[in-house]
Nucleic acid binder design. Structure first.
Lengths: 157, 157
DNA sequence: GCCCGGTTACTCGGATATATAGTGTCCGAGTCCGATGGG
DNA sequence: CCCATCGGACTCGGACACTATATATCCGAGTAACCGGGC
């Protein structure tokens, strides 16, 4: 899994704590976490395309959350960055080689291997979808009181 | 996720159905699924190192299951091929940039982002570990009766 | 007929190239803020 | 004093190199089976 997911989640948390209605530029987000600003800009674009972020062009522009943090799940972020297709892709190798000698009816149902991986993928996605950005923000604030305010002050200009 | 996982699972299913005590060579496994034999050989080596397969050298050699199919889980196979480290790796970017201004005590607990991804990873691994090779073999046989015998006959010489 | 040695053929194992996806960087188009000059 | 206009600077967005991982292939080391000769 690419590191863009980690960057995106931290950025979205920053925007969760940031002053509502105040766009935060990419440069400010990059310095907050010691990231290269141009590359971070490239990583945030899928989030805009997915409708999680709103980009405000021009001076005093930047990025805003498109929805309340309670309405954005970790699954949404992962899907936006990594793509919607599951990690495991079945190539149907059971139908190649000796499988060509069997009738087509033998392959009517899903491959058992693919089914097992899909079941695990479903619970993984369910676990990610069960946690919202608000949940993560609350957890971080609970572990380190005052962290949200600290982040908001950093992005204030 | 690499396709080696799919190959390994199908190969292990073949060995599950194959005659016990009879080693199956890599070439026979490759032709069974239309795979390039030399590359399949490379993909099976991690399974030998992990202790899931036993390789028998020499003429009439091949691969054997090191344990009964009920004692091998899908998780074991994925771990052997992809490695033990989780898909998401936390780079602790919260400590870089503005995080350097905060006291070390703020980072005593696990990063909230990493914790969320780890929770999902745990349920994913748990789902994979809950299914054994015997379960997959039974499922495939149920969907296509006689498939196991067909595979065994193919590998018989 | 039985046993032993050499040969042969077949197997796995690791070392070696290539393709693809992820990583990193750059420059241009567009937009808003602020200063400036006029009314 | 207020307003329209121009200039400037800052922002995002897409296009362009580089690196690491995954994919694909090859050849060599080792071992067991097989065949032939000797006892």
């Amino acid at each position: 899994m690419g590191q863009g997911v980690e960057w995106a989640l931290h950025v979205l948390l920053s925007l969760t704590w940031s002053t509502p209605g105040q766009p935060v530029p990419c440069g400010s987000l990059a310095t907050a976490y010691g990231l290269p600003a141009p590359y971070l800009s490239k990583q945030l674009q899928p989030l805009v395309h997915a409708g999680l972020l709103v980009s405000v062009p021009g001076a005093r522009g930047g990025f805003l959350l498109a929805r309340p943090p309670t309405e954005i799940s970790v699954m949404d972020v992962v899907t936006a960055i990594e793509g919607p297709e599951p990690a495991f892709r079945c190539a149907e190798i059971r139908q190649a080689g000796m499988g060509a000698e069997l009738p087509r009816s033998s392959f009517a149902t899903e491959c058992a291997v693919a089914a097992a991986m899909r079941r695990a993928d479903v619970v993984w996605r369910r676990a990610l979808a069960a946690q919202s950005l608000a949940d993560l923000a609350a957890e971080a604030e609970a572990h380190a009181p005052g962290y949200g305010a600290f982040v908001r002050d950093h992005h204030a200009r």
